[in-house]
Nucleic acid binder design. Sequence first.
DNA 1: ATGGTGGCGCGGCCA
Length: 255
Amino acid sequence: MKIATWNVNSLRVRLPQVLQWLETAQPDVLALQETKLSDDKFPVEEIAAAGYQVAFHGQPTYNGVAILSRLPLTDVRIGMPGFDDDQARVLAATVDGVRVLDLYVPNGQEVGSEKYAYKLRWLEHLAGVVAAELAQHSRLVVLGDFNIAPADADVHDPEAWRGKVLFSEPEKVALQRLFDLGLADSFRLFDQDENVFSWWDYRAAGFRRNIGLRIDLVLLSETLAANCTDASVDRAPRAWERPSDHAPALASFKL
DNA sequence: ATGGTGGCGCGGCCA
C-alpha cells in the first residue's frame, strides 16, 4: 500500500493539482487536510472520476479533512471520541484491513496563547485515541499535518526555532508520546538527504531558499513499520504554480 | 523589517 498525506490549503483551489498528483504519484490512499470546504461543496464526482472513493469531514472557511482511497473505505469516523471539537480536524477509516487516522493538528499560533493551550489539550486527548486504535488495529497509520517538527534534523534552523510554536518542548513531548505508544516516523526508517522539509512559509520566499520544516508525517504501527519499503516527501507540487504551502509526504508498505 | 504571502470572503482571521 502506498499512502500519502497532503495539506492542500483549500481543495477548491487545489483540486486540479490533487488530480494531477494522483495521476503521477498513484497512491492507494491520500489523506488531505485544510480542505476548507463544507461537506455539501465537496468535489465527490471529480475525485470518483479519478478512480478514488472519498470520505470527508469539513466546515466552511477553515480546517477540513478527507481520505481518498482506491479500495472501499469502511468504519468511517469523524472527530475524536470523547473530545467535543467544533473544528473539523480528524477523520478515521479502514482500507484493506489498514486503519487510517487522518489528522490536522492545531497550529497553536504562538507559545502561551489560547490556541497553543488548545493544541496541547488536543494532543493529550489524541494520545488516548491512538492508544485505543492501536489496541484494536495492529495495522494502523496515523498521518497528516502534525504542526510539530519531531527533531532538529526536521528544522532548517533549529536554534532559531527552539521554543517556538511548531518546535517547542511540550509539543515535541506530545509527539514523543505517540512514538512511545509504538508508532514510528516512517521517514526516519530510511537514510534520507539532509534538509528535507514538507512545509515552507509563503512569506519571505521560504521555498526558494528551502527555509522549511518537516511537519507532515506518516506514522506507522510496529507491524506496518516492519514492512515499510519506502518513505519520502515529494517536493515537486510545492514548485507548481499557485501551490499549497505544504508538499505531500508518503510511505509504502507490504501488507 | 514584530515584516512578509495566501485563502476566504469582503473585514479580519488564520496559517
